[in-house]
Amino acid sequence: MAFIDFKKKELQVKIVYYGPSRGGKTTNLDYAYHKMDNRLKTDMVSIKTHGDRTLFFDFLPFDIGKIMGYDLKIMLYTVPGQVKYNATRKLVLRGVDGLVFVADAMEIRRDYNTQSLENLYDNLKEYNIDINNLPLIMQYNKIDLSDQGIPLLSKETLESDLNSELQAPSFMASALQGDNVIPTLKKIISLTVMNIKKDLQ
């Protein structure tokens, strides 16, 4: 359930980009930030290692209007994908309202996707969250790499590996070039906000 700040009359919606290391979660947020209307632009917070990897999380907040008389504030987060940062991932997941799972479409990264999804299941379980009740989008990233002759998994394979039970809306995307980054974001915001509205009613 979204966090409500009664004093500010503000509803804070937490959307988390989850997925394996180097899958493109931060690139998604970078692109969205770059595309934001300058007049509405907020600050994006990133904590990175010297090798430019996400150390703790990335954070991008912005306002999108009112719901039930409350100001809606969307807060986008990424988690560090590397296996060893699980405590951090768990922490970022606390209070999550919507999820984007950014899978890596490269053939050689197939196992990392399934491991990361299993890790997501485990971490949500600790918060007693059923993934089936959570707005979720699957994004299969890095489709631009096919131009460089890098073998990619087909959408069918990715769907069968990751989405056969969940049946979440999915997008083939290139976070680097921006293909389907904004549609992914719009879809998850839409699903999450409508889900919260339903809960509030």
């Binding site: 969205a32 595309k35 934001m36 209307d37 300058n38 509405l40 912005f62 999108i64 209007g65 009112k66 719901i67 039930m68 008389g69 809606l72 904004i182 974001l185 719009k186 915001i189 839409s190 906000v193 409508m194 509205k197």
Partner: peptide, 17 residues
């Protein structure tokens, strides 16, 4: 309150400007 259509429009304003 935002309707799905208004939400879509608002997101277009933010990201498609």
């Amino acid at each position: 309150d935002v309707t799905p259509e208004e939400l879509e429009k608002r997101l277009d304003e933010i990201f498609g400007g």
